[in-house]
Design a protein around this nucleic acid. Structure first.
Ligand SMILES: O=c1ccn([C@H]2C[C@H](O)[C@@H](COP(=O)(O)OP(=O)(O)OP(=O)(O)O)O2)c(=O)[nH]1
Ligand SMILES: [Mg+2]
Length: 769
DNA sequence: ATTCAGCCGGA
DNA sequence: TCCGGC
DNA sequence: GAAT
């Protein structure tokens, strides 16, 4: 309808554009896993748990129709009395304006997008105090599950197409788990409709009853008197956040949840007698804005987006002060060394952030100087590959030298560390504290933002290689893979030993719940988000109320077992059981234990078994054998569940793997291991023909980061490496293109693949990245 | 603005 | 196709 | 998040 006024349109677009930026910082975190991996690795030894996930993807929020679910918990979090979740206490701009230059005074950087410390508490009172405790009205009809994306199609049934709401990437899910109720609660107004969409894209659920809401968003212009009846009609719990429409808009702009108690968001929405707290921070934005501008500038520029309002928040500041300070610290040679990396190392760095593990500092291992050097050389002389190597080479050379000197000790140490556990690592590393916190950040971003995760890991690797403590951002920025943002965080940690962003995220209840759900086998970020949005908070909620896939059901029922690590001896015992059964079926079949076991880890997250046989050219050749084996082991009670079988080999070819669960039989349980207790374990079987064994070994030995890095290296050289072999790349037609997989170069011999790639051979235990 | 590995199985 | 997983 |  064109009838709208120009002004209205302008305003509409303005809001729209403003809304689009954001980011958040929260996430789930698997601290345990992370910690474990670290430990394992190198200084820790090995392995990580199986973590899941990776995809960045958002998903459509689930829709469940009303009524299907039994009620989600009415109340979102435990902490309801005040604001739930993490939020910034004050909108950034305000803060900056704080008298006395608050930011500086604290010395805490204001931080980028994150929160403010609790120190400054603006709100004197919980805005909603006046609300009644819930009345528990008969809200019969409410769909309990409504959640997520569902639209509450309210009276004005205008919505319809929202069926397919596309969620923004994980990093922008600032409203995850929150349930918004609008007053009026419809999208008849275009501006409001846009706001609702923006909120939903960021993880908010639009609910249709006040009762289920965590946040009540009141249109501007309405006052407490206007909404009073609404609030009373449905019981409103005291913990609900009631704010005007500017609140979600500002949150979107700043990419973080802000403190909803600021006066500008509750103005006229509270009972008269409760004047909003006079907080300095709550000053009008305009005033503050000016003050901030300077500080922020840098960041602002960076963001440069449409938005522009800016991000006062972010800022931070660290930058400037830091630079000044810098001089105190001396740049060290080590830094220079760190800068250099060899080719594979570099790729490892590039790849390193994703999902799961990260472990070692490859420094020693990887580098063990030799490998690197060799690799480079080969690449260089060898042949083609040198695309971008020239530049790298240079660097590398320098590093190489340095490494060589260290080599002896380093290599050994790393080896010891890996297996031994703690020793090496922590030890001398002056940046241990920083690494630890950054590691926790990795855990927080896991599943949410693979690339960011990767960047953190890469930074950690760089820090590990330092022999001196990095205390300033300026210094940190010299390291490869560390940019402005990470440098600022490193400085923050060095300065006060903590990282606000991390603390903030850790406190957010939904992150804890999300993290819990993500540990369930078969549950990824998409499903976990939906469940959190629906209000589920425990595994029992899922078990009883959620709709679960077959695998998820198993994951929940055996949650503890499946999240427990498997001691090395048990991996061997389990493999022995399989081998024995196989011997009766076809004695010529061979088994190779891969995964973290092959890399020498003391414990593994699962058992990875390669099943191969001489003279086989296709995994299909082994299918009959596998079927018999599975049947036999299942009958014996060894295999307890099938999570992903090769069932009827589906379309794309190779039905080559089998994933399931198994339990060590008591008869195979060593007497010296204490009392027997059956524990469900994850087991992955991979069928590999002799012609693909080398590639399969590389793949199944990992670790994942190593695989990704070597695959990346291959692609940079115009080749393609996958679990079946190394191929000459074929152009893929835009549409995947089935044929042409490229000519196989090698698949049979693991070492030969390394050679063809120009990568120096690395023993499995040297593949922790 | 693009890239960050490449693939398999289930629904 | 998307999701979860290796 | 960083590098390109
Ligand atoms: O995203 C991934 C995950 C795994 N792998 C490969 C490498 C890995 O070593 C192997 C087995 O996977 P698993 O998840 O079992 O990892 P792991 O290295 O064996 O560690 P864990 O001890 O957790 O089992 O599959 C990949 O290539 N990409
Ligand atoms: Mg494994």
């Amino acid at each position: 309808m064109e009838e709208r006024k120009l002004a209205e349109k302008i305003a509409y677009f303005k809001r729209l554009s403003a809304i689009q930026a954001e980011e958040n910082g929260d996430d789930a975190y698997d601290a345990e896993e992370q910690a474990h991996r670290e430990r394992c690795k190198t200084f820790h030894n090995a392995t990580s748990t199986s973590s899941r996930a990776k995809s960045p993807a958002p998903s459509v929020t689930g829709l469940r129709k009303p009524g299907t679910v039994s009620q989600p918990l009415p109340c979102p979090d435990s902490s309801q009395g005040s604001d739930d979740l993490e939020i910034i206490k004050v909108t950034p701009r305000n803060r900056s304006s704080r008298p006395g230059a608050a930011g500086i005074a604290d010395k805490t950087p204001n931080v980028e997008e994150e929160i403010i410390p609790e120190s400054a508490h603006p709100d004197p009172k919980p805005a909603h105090s006046f609300l009644h405790p819930l009345l528990r009205p008969r809200m019969t009809r409410q769909t309990s599950g409504l959640t997520s994306d569902n639209s509450p199609s309210t009276s004005t049934a205008k919505r319809k197409k929202q069926a397919r709401l596309k969620l923004l990437p994980e990093n922008q899910q600032i409203f995850r788990g929150l349930r918004f109720y609008y007053i009026p609660n419809d999208d008849a107004n275009r501006v409001r409709a846009a706001q609702i969409t923006k909120a939903r894209e960021r993880g908010a659920s639009w609910v249709r009853t006040l009762k289920e809401a965590t946040h009540v968003i009141v249109d501007e212009g309405l006052t407490y008197q206007d909404i009073k009846s609404d609030l009373m009609s449905d019981s409103s719990s005291p913990g609900k956040v009631i704010v005007n429409a500017n609140y979600p808009i500002d949150c979107v702009i700043h990419r973080i949840l802000l403190n909803p108690n600021q006066e500008k968001y509750v103005r006229n929405l509270r009972v008269a007698e409760t004047p909003p707290s006079p907080n300095p921070s709550s000053l009008p934005a305009s005033a503050q804005a000016s003050s901030n501008s300077l500080e922020i500038k840098r960041k602002q520029r960076k963001r440069s987006r449409k938005d522009q309002e800016l991000p006062p928040e972010t800022q931070s500041d660290y930058g400037e002060p830091l630079q000044n300070n810098t001089p105190s610290i001396a740049p060290v040679t080590t830094i220079a060394a760190a800068l250099v990396e060899d080719e594979l190392s570099q790729y490892i760095g590039l790849v390193q952030g994703n999902s799961l593990y990260l472990e070692m500092p490859l420094e020693e291992e990887e580098d063990s100087a030799q490998s690197e050097a060799t690799k480079d050389d080969e690449a260089e002389s060898g042949s083609e590959s040198s695309k971008d190597e020239s530049s790298r080479k240079k660097k590398r050379r320098t590093r190489e030298k340095i490494q060589l000197s260290q080599e002896d000790t380093t290599w050994q140490d790393s080896f010891a560390c890996m297996k031994g556990g703690t020793r090496g690592a922590a030890v001398d590393n002056p940046n241990a504290a920083t690494i630890e916190l950054l590691q926790l950040m990795v855990g927080m971003y896991e599943h949410r933002d693979d690339w960011r995760c990767k960047s953190y890991r890469r930074a950690i690797t760089a820090l590990r290689q330092q022999t001196r403590k990095i205390t300033t951002a300026k210094e940190a920025m010299k390291l490869p893979g560390i940019g402005k943002s990470l440098a600022a965080k490193i400085e923050e940690i060095a300065a006060d030993g903590r990282l606000r962003k991390l603390e903030h995220a850790q406190q957010r209840p939904e992150n804890k719940i999300l993290n819990l759900f993500l540990k369930v086998y078969g549950v990824g970020i998409g499903q976990a988000n939906k469940w959190v949005s629906q209000g589920y908070r425990t595994l029992e909620d899922l078990r009883e109320k959620a709709k679960l896939s077959t695998n998820q059901r198993i994951g929940i029922e055996h949650f503890d077992d499946l999240n427990e690590r498997i001691p090395r001896w048990e991996v061997e015992a389990l493999a022995a059981v399989v081998r024995e059964a196989a011997g009766d079926i076809d004695a010529s079949v061979e088994f190779i234990i891969g995964g973290s076991y092959r890399r020498g880890s003391d414990s593994s997250g699962d058992i990875d078994l390669i099943i191969t046989k001489k003279r086989t050219r296709s995994s299909q050749n082994l299918l009959p054998f596998l079927e018999k084996l599975i049947k036999r082991l299942t009958d014996d009670g060894f295999l307890t569940a099938a999570l992903a079988s090769f069932s009827g080999n589906t379309k794309k070819g190779h039905g080559s793997k089998w994933h399931g669960c198994c339990v060590l039989p008591e008869t195979a349980f060593p007497k010296d291991k204490g009392k027997y207790r059956p524990i469900w374990r994850r087991i992955d079987l991979l069928l590999v023909p002799e012609t693909e064994l080398g590639a399969a070994l590389i793949y199944f030995t990992g670790n994942d980061i190593f695989n990704r890095s070597i695959r990346l290296l291959a692609s940079k050289k115009g080749l393609r490496l996958n679990q079946r072999g190394l191929f000459k790349d074929v152009l893929r037609g835009k549409r995947g293109v089935t044929y042409t997989e490229g000519d196989p170069l090698e698949g049979r011999d693991e070492k030969r693949i390394f050679e063809l790639l120009g990568v120096k051979w690395r023993e499995p235990h040297e593949r922790w990245c």
